[in-house]
């Protein structure tokens, strides 16, 4: 049952309000906000990478305020233990005697801000795996469901910095998007300096109830994914594997099937944000870089030659045509208008 035009317009309007609200607290990062909202609607976890002080934490806090969701912040440090984020059983006096009672950790929130996730040890990083994939944590053999919706928005500093541990590939694959937070230009900085005061958090009124967010997320699933678009996604992901395309010569390991699912989900979300009943090639191209760039692993030669994951994904987009149509040599392609 396709979505009606009215539904599409209503959901798109609500999403626009959310984006506008976020732009009130984070100036000059329209594309970043667009992508974060897209990831949110696609029920994905997001990894934000950028230097300190660029507004990553502010964005997540603003998102929780605008969505009126319970949010927790975990500052990852090298001595942080898995139990510190999942929660621990504590011995308590009860009418029945002393017994262990589970004390939920900071993961038990709708929106978890995992700040500087790559400063924690790999053991602690891995503790997030189950929470992100299964949306539950298991402590002493007992599974505890996490509240719905559950999103992890993690920030990390570039791994070249001192005291960072690169995230394991399995965990990276569980992030829908990896977004790079770039520095602002001078005009935006001037706007920030003029409108903000150090140490004073900007106020933001909620623009959406959690039920409305759930409806939007459900609507995104109803977006029609044409067969040709699904075929494009499949060819794009397949081309990321060594030997499947010219660009993949510099790739050691390609993207997983989860990457294909993520591409489809993100493309649908983007279509809903634009009030369209169907996903398109353009949607896939728009979300391909944040979806794929952290899921492919470059080989040694490519890294030495200065290739980046982003550049490789962009080369893949240029190499793989949206439609698998082999044009005869008797016909030539004209320039696009």
């Amino acid at each position: 049952m396709p979505l009606s035009d009215d539904d599409l317009r209503k959901y798109a309007s609500e999403i626009t309000r959310l984006k506008d609200a976020l732009q009130q607290i984070l100036f000059g990062q329209e594309h970043l906000i667009e992508m974060v909202v897209t990831g949110l609607i696609a029920r994905g976890h997001i990894l934000l990478e950028g230097l300190p002080g660029l507004g990553k934490t502010e964005l997540v806090k603003g998102l929780s305020k605008a969505l009126k969701l319970e949010n927790k912040r975990i500052q990852f440090t090298p001595d942080l233990l898995p139990g510190d984020i999942t929660g621990n059983p504590v011995l308590q006096e009860t009418p029945q005697g002393r017994e262990f009672v589970f004390q939920p950790g900071p993961l038990f929130a709708n929106l978890v801000l995992a700040d500087e996730i790559n400063r924690a040890s790999p053991k602690t990083q891995s503790a997030l795996l189950e929470a992100m994939q299964e949306r539950r944590v298991t402590v002493l053999g007992e599974a505890h469901e996490l509240p719905a919706p559950f999103f992890v928005l993690a920030t990390q500093n570039p791994i070249e910095l001192e005291g960072t541990y690169p995230l394991p590939e399995a965990q990276l694959d569980r992030f829908l998007f990896k977004l790079e937070v770039l520095r602002n230009d001078a005009a935006t900085l001037q706007k920030i300096v003029t409108g903000r005061e150090l140490g004073v958090e900007p106020t933001l009124e909620p623009v959406m109830e959690s039920s409305e967010l759930a409806a939007i997320m459900n609507a995104a699933r109803e977006i029609y994914l044409p067969e040709v678009v699904a075929n494009y996604i499949a060819r794009l992901v397949d081309a990321s594997h060594p030997g499947q395309s010219k660009t993949a010569e510099g790739i050691k390991f390609g993207a997983s099937p989860r990457a294909a699912l993520s591409l489809a989900s993100a493309a649908k979300s983007r279509a809903l944000m634009q009030a369209r009943p169907n996903a398109s090639f353009e949607d896939v191209k728009a979300v391909a870089v944040p979806v794929l760039q952290h899921r492919i692993i470059l080989d040694y030669n490519a890294r030495i030659d200065g290739h980046t994951n982003r550049g490789i994904v962009e080369a893949l987009l240029a190499e793989v045509p949206s439609q698998a149509l082999e044009t005869p040599p008797t016909i030539k392609e004209t320039a696009e208008v």
Partner: peptide, 30 residues
């Protein structure tokens, strides 16, 4: 944005055809 495919599958209405009836498929004879 794949509107024609969606319309052909009954998902969305057909968009308005181009005013000029020249085929704009990007193909030209070599």
């Amino acid at each position: 944005k794949n509107a024609l495919t969606a319309a052909e599958n009954g998902i969305a209405p057909w968009p308005s055809p181009p005013a000029e009836h020249r085929v704009q498929d990007g193909f030209a004879w070599h």
